[in-house]
């Protein structure tokens, strides 16, 4: 589904990604860990093709196509989707309108809105004045409407209350076809998380630890998360260094 090869990315003249390698198969869910400022969101933005995130080396292959220099909308049309950690507000554009313009039926829009309990937000301007939790739900809502083959989900649970975390987890499961047997799953996802709450509800196949622009360790996501929780990010790296030597 996705192959990231030796990806170096610059933002405002600063190198934020330094040789990322990543492979995600069809139907797989991966988790990305890493301290603040490590470059996790930047990796998503680079995969999505945002202009500020300039690829200086390496390439991104999606569904066997080199997409390294495609604009975001063409990537989206190929089946990539993203939910933002901090989305911008769109004045005068209603959440409902986005669904309609994506060509979705009213029925689907209402169904997903109900699933995420955001009917009240449908006729509001996208993200304008939304609370933190509402924003997260509106992001997942838009991803559901889009139905991408690879979803990049950036901190879906940060700042979300316990009840709404369940709603979001349900929606992500649906998005990633978790109800189907593994072999029938087509959709893949990468989830960034600090809290791990989402891991308890959405089963992931593989975890990666990103530090200072590099993937320094990969493995079983739950084990990695427990390790990080107990000993911090640094120890996790030591373990990786051990495996190298």
């Amino acid at each position: 589904m996705l192959i990231v090869e030796n990806l170096w990315v610059e933002v405002e003249g600063e190198k934020v990604l330094k040789g990322i390698n990543l492979r995600i198969k069809s139907g797989e869910t991966h988790v990305l860990f890493g301290p603040n400022g490590a470059g996790k969101s930047s990796l998503f933005f680079a995969i999505m093709g945002f202009s500020k995130y300039r690829v200086v080396e390496g390439r991104i292959i999606f569904k066997e196509r080199d997409i390294t220099y495609l604009p975001p909308h063409e990537r989206a049309r190929l089946g990539l989707g993203i939910s933002f950690q901090r989305p911008p507000s769109l004045r005068g554009i209603k959440l409902y309108q986005i669904g309609k313009l994506m060509g979705r039926e009213d029925r689907k829009i209402q169904e997903y809105a109900k699933l995420l309990s955001l009917n009240g937000l449908l006729y509001r301007d996208v993200n304008l004045g939304f609370s933190g939790g509402e924003m997260k739900r509106s992001e997942i809502f838009q991803l559901l409407l889009q139905g991408p083959d690879l979803a990049l989900i950036d901190e879906p649970e940060s700042g979300v209350d316990v009840v709404n975390i369940d709603l979001i987890a349900e929606a992500i499961k649906r998005l990633l076809q978790k109800d189907r047997p593994i072999l029938e799953r087509k959709r893949s996802g990468i989830i960034i998380t600090h809290t791990g709450f989402i891991l308890e509800k959405v089963k992931a196949d593989r975890g990666h630890l990103l530090m200072d622009g590099k993937i320094v360790c990969s493995g079983n996501p739950e084990e990695m998360f427990n390790e990080i929780k107990l000993k911090g990010y640094k120890e996790c790296v030591k373990c990786w260094k051990k495996t190298l030597s």
């Binding site: 604009p71 909308h73 049309r77 993203i82 769109l90 004045r91 554009i93 994506m102």
Partner: peptide, 18 residues
């Protein structure tokens, strides 16, 4: 654009919203 809208569609939407 990340939702699949072309840059022209995106601008037009933002202008109408404005």
């Amino acid at each position: 654009m990340s939702r699949g809208f072309s840059p022209e569609e995106a601008k037009s939407l933002i202008i109408k919203g404005f």
